[in-house]
Structures are given as structure tokens and as C-alpha cells.
Simulated scan of single mutants.
Amino acid sequence: MDNRIFFNPGDSIANIHDYDEAVRKGQIYKKEKHIDDLVIAKGPDDEEYAIFYAKDALPADHKASKPYDVRRKL
């Protein structure tokens, strides 16, 4: 997986300021929903971590896409 990926910010499952908290919430969500394609990504504002379904990635030229740096795949 590349380090940079594009998402619509409105598609995030959660936005959290603390990386460790984002990982914990992502792991809980993954376990509850029985899914395998979550990513923790640092937002374009460089202030928050977002949890996304990896399948929701958009092409860079999509009008709603914003660049995120993937920090962890769950």
C-alpha cells in the first residue's frame, strides 16, 4: 500500500486527534463489524487521524478527494 491515498473526508468512520486512540477505536470497530480493510490515515490538515475503509479510496483527480498519509492498515 502506498503511503499517500485519497479519500473523501466525509467517508471517514472516525476522526481522532490521538494516534493510539485511533488505532484502538479502529481495532474495536474492526472486531465488531468483522471487516479487514480499515486504514488509519493522517488527515490533510495534519491535525487528525481518520479511519477509513480502504475500498473507499478515490483517484487523485476526483473532485471530493483529499490526500491522506496512511499510518497503519488494520
Rank of each mutant, 00 (worst) to 15 (best):
D45G: 07
Y19M: 06
H62S: 08
Q27T: 05
D18W: 02
K73Y: 12
D45A: 07
I16W: 00
K73A: 08
E47G: 01
P67G: 11
N15R: 09
V39M: 07
D45T: 10
A57F: 04
Y68S: 03
L58H: 03
I40L: 08
V70L: 10
D11C: 14
A54G: 09
F6I: 06
A22W: 02
K66W: 02
P67A: 14
K55T: 09
K25L: 15
H34G: 14
P9W: 04
R24A: 05
D20A: 10
V23T: 04
M1A: 11
G10K: 11
K25H: 13
K42M: 12
I28D: 12
A41E: 01
D2F: 06
P44R: 04
D37E: 15
I40D: 00
I35S: 06
D37N: 15
Y53R: 12
H34S: 15
F52N: 00
Y29K: 04
K42I: 09
R24I: 05
Y19H: 07
F52K: 00
D69P: 00
I16G: 00
I51E: 01
D20K: 12
D46N: 13
D11T: 14
K55I: 07
F52S: 00
D2S: 12
E32M: 13
S65A: 15
N8A: 09
Y53C: 06
F6Q: 05
D56T: 01
A50G: 10
V23K: 11
H62T: 06
N3D: 13
M1S: 13
A14G: 08
F6L: 05
K73M: 12
Y29H: 14
F7Y: 13
V70P: 01
A64W: 01
E48L: 12
P59E: 11
I51M: 12
S12L: 04
I51L: 15
D2C: 03
D36G: 15
E47M: 05
Y29R: 06
P9A: 09
K66P: 02
K30D: 05
K31F: 09
I51K: 02
I5T: 13
A64T: 08
K73S: 11
